[in-house]
Deep mutational scan, measured.
Amino acid sequence: MMAYMNPGPHYSVNALALSGPSVDLMHQAVPYPSAPRKQRRERTTFTRSQLEELEALFAKTQYPDVYAREEVALKINLPESRVQVWFKNRRAKCRQQRQQQKQQQQPPGGQAKARPAKRKAGTSPRPSTDVCPDPLGISDSYSPPLPGPSGSPTTAVATVSIWSPASESPLPEAQRAGLVASGPSLTSAPYAMTYAPASAFCSSPSAYGSPSSYFSGLDPYLSPMVPQLGGPALSPLSGPSVGPSLAQSPTSLSGQSYGAYSPVDSLEFKDPTGTWKFTYNPMDPLDYKDQSAWKFQIL
């Protein structure tokens, strides 16, 4: 009977010793046993002879290597770790002494450095960015050149030099007046198309007034536009458009034309069986010896 009264063996659950049927240790109110408190290391007290050895090595170098620390530790009968900690504390003490010396050398008012006064946003004049500046400075420094007289040679050079070769001289006033084509001369031969040399188009003023001019072949195509416009036809070669000034309004060009419109200028042929003959000019830059190549039959 006494065997049943004795408590059973101890069981360990999660490293906790349980005594038989008792489960009081598993209750929430019972805390787990805490780790033992780490003991504080005792402070090391250095003797005068030990301090002399350490100070002598510190005077040589503030960062001794492990071999120098072990050698000193053997002399003063201390572990190497204590020597390492002593050098660490000695360097910190040396830095603190240097900072105190710097503070003593500075004057009393030198510690508080005078800061520059901050400028207020409204006091300083700042350039306004509302208006974009002129990058080319046209509004201040540029002045347009004065327009020359209508009959000045410089204007003629600016007008005619675009179309004339570089080897030719500017046309005088008398020749510029001949550039304007007359109405009857352009409409006299509506079906004849003559190819003149390129030099005649640039230099010869008579080429624009003769039936064999460069633009005589364009007349049949330009004249039928007159009834559609409801007024006189516009002429690209009329009046002052080739003269001194090219800047004319469309209203000033509306009254200039080749001449009176005639039914002869239409595109319809009077004789459907007729042929169109292209007159060959020996001055043509295209060297075609066979003139029969310039004739064709309209079917």
Rank of each mutant, 00 (worst) to 15 (best):
Q99F: 05
V23E: 01
S216E: 02
E168I: 11
Y4I: 10
D284L: 15
L179T: 06
A68H: 10
L74G: 07
T159P: 01
E55W: 09
S210H: 10
R91I: 15
S216K: 12
R91N: 14
A207M: 11
S245N: 06
T159E: 02
R40A: 14
S34K: 07
T45M: 10
Q101I: 15
E71K: 10
V131D: 06
P153D: 00
S124V: 07
G151Q: 07
Y280W: 15
S19F: 15
P282Y: 09
T279R: 10
S19G: 05
G137F: 05
V83E: 14
Y214I: 05
S150V: 05
Q99Y: 10
P133V: 06
V242A: 03
V85N: 13
G255E: 00
N14R: 13
P170W: 09
V85M: 15
K38N: 05
M5F: 11
L74M: 04
L25V: 05
A59N: 09
G110A: 04
A17D: 00
A59H: 06
L57G: 14
Q248D: 06
S34G: 07
L78T: 14
C202D: 00
P172W: 12
S141A: 05
T123S: 02
P227G: 10
L16I: 12
L18M: 01
N14P: 09
A293Y: 08
R40P: 08
A121C: 03
R40E: 13
S152M: 05
Q97S: 04
P31D: 06
P127A: 11
R41C: 13
P224E: 02
M225D: 01
G239C: 09
I298P: 00
S169D: 04
P232C: 10
Y221C: 02
E42H: 05
Q50K: 13
V13G: 01
S292I: 14
G274S: 03
E80W: 14
I76H: 11
S185D: 06
P172A: 04
I162C: 00
Y191W: 15
P250E: 03
A247L: 10
P285G: 07
A92R: 14
W276V: 00
Y258T: 03
P240D: 00
K75S: 10
S81I: 05
Y261M: 03
A181Q: 08
G151H: 10
K75V: 12
V157I: 11
K60R: 01
M26P: 05
K295Q: 04
K295A: 05
P282E: 02
D219G: 15
F201S: 01
V30G: 03
M26K: 04
A207W: 09
F269T: 00
R82L: 14
V23A: 02
K93C: 15
V72Q: 14
D130Q: 06
V72R: 14
P31E: 02
V13Q: 00
G259P: 04
A92S: 11
D265K: 12
D140K: 06
R176G: 03
E52S: 05
S241L: 13
V72Y: 15
S12L: 15
G137K: 02
T129H: 12
R115K: 05
K93G: 14
A92M: 12
S12C: 14
C94L: 06
K270A: 03
S266V: 13
N281G: 11
Y4K: 03
A247N: 08
S19I: 15
F87Q: 12
G20D: 04
M26N: 01
A56N: 05
F58V: 12
Y11F: 13
F201L: 03
P107Y: 03
A189K: 05
P153R: 15
N89I: 15
Y142H: 11
K102D: 03
H10P: 06
Q297R: 09
S185I: 14
D65F: 14
Q62P: 06
R95P: 14
P9I: 14
K75D: 14
Q297S: 10
A3C: 08
Q104F: 06
E71H: 08
S143M: 07
P127W: 06
A121D: 04
G217K: 08
L286P: 02
D130T: 04
V30S: 02
P170E: 05
Q104A: 04
S266H: 08
P205T: 07
K120H: 01
L253H: 07
M225G: 00
S124Y: 10
D65E: 10
Q39Y: 15
S161V: 15
P285K: 14
S203F: 15
Y261Q: 02
S241V: 09
P272T: 02
P153M: 10
A192T: 08
S203W: 15
G231Q: 00
S124L: 05
P240R: 12
F58I: 15
K270C: 04
S12K: 07
Y191L: 07
P224M: 14
Q297G: 01
S152A: 09
P170G: 07
L179R: 03
K60M: 09
P190E: 04
A56E: 08
S212Y: 12
I138D: 03
S19A: 07
I298L: 02
S262A: 09
T123A: 03
Q291Y: 09
V226H: 08
R115T: 02
T129K: 04
R82A: 14
E80Q: 02
S210A: 10
L237M: 01
N89W: 15
Q256I: 10
K120F: 02
T154E: 03
D290E: 05
Q106F: 07
A156Y: 15
A181F: 15
V157H: 04
A233M: 08
S212D: 01
V83D: 13
E55P: 15
P220V: 14
